[in-house]
């Protein structure tokens, strides 16, 4: 089926949208007085499914508050569907503000056969002179012909290894993208930030400075038969910092995908971080307490990724080490 979507048409629709948003307020309806337009990047979201394209809109809307963007949501289309698009705005009133802030969103329905067309459409839709980030929410996109044509337009590709069939598949994709010198991020890594901060903060107290060398053993307990990518990342990050320690993984019953606990031990150091329920962690050791971490939602992880537009040397190093751990296990 021929392409029915032209960037010029979409841009004209966006212009009309802004004109309508900027229209004088309707006194009777009590509508707000005007809008401010904001854009700091193009955020392309490749939804996992048609339903996901709807579901993710709320998350994208939340992200806009801190990272105002032109959002382009790619909705997987069925074989019989044509390349199609619609435009709309996400508006919010800042707390205590007087004017709404609005960002534009474009949804493009993208059947497999039209993927090549799609990258051309997107080329015409990128917000000029600003970074472009691709958030890919489904493994299948990487297997689709023509999807890779998007990569040269993109400054950073964000994927979620949790959404892959296995850590192996996720690591293979990341390695392949990195070999093409693409900047890649994995939300499984971003979701570890609160855990890592908690561990780093605790170790600063129980094993400051050189005392880190006293830690001889790292055990990462995981749910499921094999560790998820998150488990490898956490293990790699710890063994990178605790060079005298050996690392092991241990299976425990529970919800697949999460890290269950981290146990660090050695000469005079014995500390563990055990997930109790959801985001509650019990820290045991020199100080014992319960920590309730903020929920590691897609929004939270993605918000963190969007603040990092340049290189992320810690993740680069950890990824290589995690691959090594995976190949050994």
């Amino acid at each position: 089926m021929a392409s029915t979507v032209q960037p010029e048409v979409i841009l004209r629709e966006l212009a009309d949208l802004w004109t309508s948003l900027a229209a004088p307020p309707d006194a009777a309806s009590g509508a707000s007085s005007g809008v401010l337009r904001a854009c700091s990047m193009t955020l392309i979201v490749a939804a996992a499914s048609a339903e996901d394209a709807t579901d993710v809109t709320a998350t994208v809307g939340e992200l806009m508050h801190e990272h105002p963007s032109r959002a382009i949501i790619l909705k997987p289309g069925g074989e019989s569907e044509a390349l199609d698009s619609r435009v709309y705005a996400q508006c919010w009133m800042p707390f205590g503000g007087r004017q709404q802030i609005c960002c534009e969103q474009i949804e493009i329905t993208t059947p497999d056969a039209q993927l090549t067309q799609m990258s051309r459409v997107i080329l015409g839709l990128l917000a000029p002179d600003l970074p472009a980030v691709l958030w890919c929410r489904g493994e299948h996109w990487f297997e689709r012909r023509g999807f890779h044509q998007l990569y040269p337009l993109i400054d950073k590709i964000v994927l979620d290894s949790c959404s892959f069939s296995s850590p192996d598949a996720a690591f293979d994709t990341i390695r392949s993208l990195r070999s093409e010198r693409r900047r890649v991020a994995d939300l499984s890594w971003s979701r570890l930030t609160m855990w890592r901060e908690m561990i780093a903060g605790t170790l600063e107290v129980v094993a400051p400075g050189k005392r880190l060398d006293a830690i001889r053993s790292i055990v990462v307990e995981h749910y499921g038969d094999t560790p998820a990518a998150q488990g490898y990342y956490l293990g790699a990050w710890l063994s990178r910092a605790l060079s005298s320690a050996t690392i092991g993984f241990k299976r425990v019953p529970g919800e697949v995908g999460h890290v269950a606990s981290v146990i660090l031990s050695g000469e005079g150091v014995d500390v563990s971080f055990r997930r109790l329920e959801g985001d509650t962690v019990q820290v045991s050791g020199a100080q014992s307490n319960i920590v309730v971490l903020p929920h590691a939602s897609d929004y939270r992880a993605m918000r963190e990724e969007l603040t990092i537009t340049g290189a992320d040397p810690t993740f680069e190093e950890v990824f290589m080490q995690a691959e090594e751990l995976r190949s050994r296990s």
């Binding site: 930030t193 890592r196 780093a200 600063e204 880190l212 990178r240 910092a241 990092i308 992320d312």
Partner: peptide, 14 residues
């Protein structure tokens, strides 16, 4: 700097 630090992602610890 400690290899446990990650200034890109961690809030500065008070």
């Amino acid at each position: 700097p400690s290899l446990l630090s990650d200034p890109l992602r961690f809030e500065r610890r008070v």
